[in-house]
């Protein structure tokens, strides 16, 4: 294929490509504006707009409720943080299921779910999103009962509740 021919095709392609992209952007903007429940463009102004927008349907549980369930022995905490953070300290009896490695702990989580235990995911606090991401990932694998611990790890230690360190 001659060089001029390729250059002419690229020129023609670029011009039409720009028009197609503009058309797509206009359609996307228009449909989002008129469809019921269209996504907000920038979310809220919080530090974690996506977490607020995309995880709002997940169930949450307060520190007090989680503590009561723990005292009754009816709960297993799922620590969504990285392993090194888990080793430095975690909620009592927690299972470490880093959100980037959900499959490794999936069977264990599924068996706990089948036993009817309350599963509560947590990460550092309100600003982190990995607990919600973990709950969402587990939903895709059929575990739909996971709740999110409001205030997370820092809320738990701030309340003076018991914690553990090291491996489980």
């Amino acid at each position: 294929m001659r060089k001029e021919m390729i250059i002419s095709r690229i020129r023609e392609g670029i011009g039409h490509a720009v028009l197609l992209i503009i058309l797509g952007l206009l359609l996307g903007t228009g449909v989002n504006a008129i469809r019921p429940g269209g996504l907000s463009w920038i979310g809220s102004q919080s530090s974690s707009p996506v977490a607020v927008d995309t995880f709002q349907d997940l169930r949450k549980i307060s520190l007090d409720e989680a503590w009561s369930l723990y005292l009754d022995g009816k709960v297993v905490f799922l620590d969504a943080r990285e392993h090194s953070w888990f080793q430095e300290g975690h909620l009592p009896g927690a299972l470490n299921v880093p959100v980037g490695d959900v499959k490794a702990g999936l069977k264990k989580v599924q068996s706990l779910d089948k036993r009817g235990l309350n599963l509560i995911a947590y990460c550092d606090g309100n600003e982190c999103s990995v607990a919600a991401e973990l709950a969402r990932s587990l939903e895709r694998y059929g575990v739909r009962s996971v709740k999110i611990l409001v205030d997370g790890w820092f809320g738990w230690i701030g309340a003076g509740y018991y914690v553990e360190k090291g491996e489980m």
Binding site: G13, I14, G15, H16, A17, L20, L23, L25, L27, T29
Partner: peptide
């Protein structure tokens, strides 16, 4: 919001054969 609609427009362009090189690019 936007990426899916660019995909749809490009897909239609290729399928019906209008502005093919732009769509392929």
């Amino acid at each position: 919001i936007l990426l899916p609609w660019v995909e749809i427009v490009v897909g239609v362009s290729l399928f019906v054969g209008i502005w093919i090189r732009g769509g392929a690019l």
